[in-house]
Design a protein around this nucleic acid. Structure first.
Length: 239
DNA sequence: CCAGACGTTGTT
DNA sequence: GTCTGG
DNA sequence: CCAGACGTTGTT
DNA sequence: GTCTGG
């Protein structure tokens, strides 16, 4: 799974690397906590030339009230790729409402002797990447407000992620750069969509432990330092 | 028929 | 131990 | 996901 | 909206 990630590069750099327009205001985010349902940049199937800001936490179209939406979105930050075609919250989005969720790193915790050790995971080449996402547009009938939301697909962990995320052995689905266009193309069969649901190649990712600033209540975690390496002597026992 | 769920995980 | 809030 | 609470009352 | 459980 993946409930915390980062996108720490500038808007113009995102435009250059992905060849898209990004017209909204944008400040790099060092720590996006899914449970705050913040707006993050995505590229949708329906508007593949543009980066848009959607709220993390998918609200299905059939939700009736804002209260129900708020309950559900805390549980739709991720969608299991194995069941995404069946689940009521996701099945109407996977066929024709896929998106790329732009990121440059994500956070997971290792369990060791009953303590949690946060890690930052990123590509060895240092570039941005895209999670496989699905999106939905929801209208609040009380206020008329439209909210565009997304969820990040998950799959089983590759060896590096299994070592880090040792309690659950899951990881987000990452789309290889060469397949961005295909993920966003219309008329993919169920099998073609399913062919994306693989762990990302182990050899291409890197990771290190970080301090617990990432979940600090008193300090602002949305700062550059959040992803800096932090050494835990007790973890040396693992190597 | 209506009411209620609709999700992610993991499991000393 | 388990739930809620962020 | 983690951090932090973990209660009483009554309720448009 | 659509399915499950009662």
């Amino acid at each position: 799974m993946c409930f915390h990630y980062s996108l720490t590069i500038e808007r113009t750099e995102i435009e250059i690397q992905l060849g898209v327009h990004f017209d909204d205001e944008w400040q790099p985010v060092h720590h996006a906590n899914g449970f705050t349902f913040l707006q993050m940049p995505v590229i949708t199937q329906t508007n593949p030339g543009a980066v848009q800001l959607f709220n993390w936490g998918l609200i299905p179209h059939w939700v009736k009230t804002k209260a129900d939406a708020d309950k559900l979105r805390a549980q739709t930050l991720n969608a299991r790729s194995e069941t995404v075609f069946e689940k009521p919250s996701f099945r109407s989005s996977i066929t024709n409402q896929r998106c790329l969720v732009i990121a440059d790193g994500f956070f997971e915790w290792m369990d060791f002797q009953k303590k949690k050790y946060p890690h930052y995971i990123y590509l060895k080449n240092g570039r941005l990447f895209c999670f496989a996402g699905i999106f939905s547009s929801w209208t609040d009938k009380e206020t008329g407000e439209h909210i565009n939301t997304f969820s990040i697909l998950t799959t089983k962990a590759n060896p590096t992620m299994a070592r880090i995320h040792n309690s659950k052995e899951r990881m987000p689905v990452i789309i290889p750069a060469s397949l961005y266009k295909k993920w966003l193309s219309a008329k993919l069969s169920k099998a073609e969509i399913g062919s994306f649901f693989n762990p990302y190649p182990d050899a291409e990712i890197a990771a290190h432990t970080i301090s617990n600033l990432v979940t600090s209540r008193n300090l602002n975690s949305n700062v550059e330092e959040v992803k800096m390496p932090f050494y835990y002597p007790e973890l040396a026992l693992l190597k």
